[in-house]
């Protein structure tokens, strides 16, 4: 009897795990205190994407600053301004999608990727963090990934990584809309100044990218069950 019910639960999980994780992510995002570290997570991947784009286009990262309210700043020198500006929101979407996809492939892959992100956060503390608040936020994020690495059951690590991926993706889906505040500040305004394409077009592009990424994850999850 118990075997039958557990089998049924397992089948339900396999069929709907993407939606269960998505609903969990949506609920977490609404919780006042619990949502804070996950907002920091999206903010970190946004800023690190600016930094990586700067390095890839021949520039360098001078400083990464993270704030308690989920805001962030990345100070760079050199590189291609357009690529660096665009990489913030697009990069966060890519990180969210990548974390979910890689965690879905294999439990060991999920563990390996978790170690990689942990090391990236630690090197960010060493090389780019310059103030106490940023160090603290990065330390919390590092502890979050260390927790997933330390999990004995790799199955849970896989699910946690998938949840992190979806949380980052949901944040990158909603955060570009904050740019439409009429103040002409941020990445959208910077791109609008460079290209003469209005800010809302850039916001629309980032929103569409996040939506496509989410749909792609849904399709993969549907194919797998």
């Amino acid at each position: 009897m118990s075997n039958l019910s557990s089998e049924r639960t397992s089948r339900l999980w396999k069929k709907y795990h993407f939606f269960i994780l998505l609903i969990t992510a949506v609920v977490i995002k609404q919780l006042p205190l619990v949502a804070i570290p996950f907002n920091w997570l999206e903010s970190y991947f946004h800023e690190i994407s600016h930094g990586i784009a700067a390095i890839l286009t021949g520039g360098s990262v001078l400083r990464i600053q993270l704030f308690a309210n989920g805001a962030g700043l990345c100070t760079t020198q050199g590189g291609i301004g357009f690529a660096i500006s665009f990489a913030g929101y697009a990069g966060a979407t890519l990180w969210g999608w990548g974390i979910y996809r890689l965690a879905s492939t294999h439990q060991r892959t999920a563990q390996g990727f978790s170690v990689l992100i942990f090391l990236l956060i630690v090197s960010s503390i060493i090389f780019w963090g310059r103030d106490v608040l940023t160090w603290f936020i990065l330390a919390v994020l590092a502890a979050l990934f260390l927790l997933t690495i330390k999990l004995r059951k790799l199955h849970y690590l896989q699910r946690l990584m998938q949840l992190f991926g979806l949380l980052i993706l949901l944040n990158s889906l909603s955060s570009p809309s904050y740019l439409l505040d009429g103040r002409n500040l941020g990445d959208g305004a910077a791109l609008a100044n460079m290209t003469f394409i209005p800010e809302f077009i850039w916001v629309l592009i980032w929103f569409s990218l996040a939506l496509i990424a989410l749909y792609s994850l849904y399709k993969t999850a549907k194919k797998n069950h």
């Binding site: 800023e47 600016h50 001078l62 962030g72 100070t75 760079t76 020198q77 660096i84 913030g88």
Partner: peptide, 8 residues
């Protein structure tokens, strides 16, 4: 002067 850019 230093060619520094700040991205938010």
């Amino acid at each position: 002067l230093f060619g520094v850019d700040v991205f938010a």
